[in-house]
């Protein structure tokens, strides 16, 4: 079974928080190269890792991960207004 591609907002959330890949990796207990794979959307995280990431950023999993291409966060905020 071929896994579906998962899209995510990890890179934007990390940059917004002002932390490096290494710092994020240490916080969620993975290698910093894995953060790179996640940010490039080359690797689908396990459910456990997805929850650890969402808990770290304080956002629901469905806000960070999606099975469809994600729109820019600013566009979504404009729409809500």
């Amino acid at each position: 079974m071929k896994a579906r591609k998962l899209y995510n907002r990890i890179k934007y959330l990390r940059v917004e928080k002002g932390i490096s890949r290494k710092q994020l990796a240490e916080e969620i207990g993975i290698n910093f190269q894995t953060v790179g794979y996640l940010e490039r959307q080359d690797y689908n995280p396990s459910l456990d890792l997805a929850f650890r990431i969402s808990e770290y950023f304080g956002f629901p999993v469905e806000f960070i991960f999606s099975t469809t291409a994600m729109r820019a966060m600013s566009a979504e905020l404009h729409e809500r207004k």
Partner: peptide, 14 residues
């Protein structure tokens, strides 16, 4: 290092 590290020290992708 990747192929010779103990599995408990690797993350899920590795």
């Amino acid at each position: 290092k990747l192929t010779h590290t103990k599995s408990k020290d690797l993350d899920e992708r590795e």
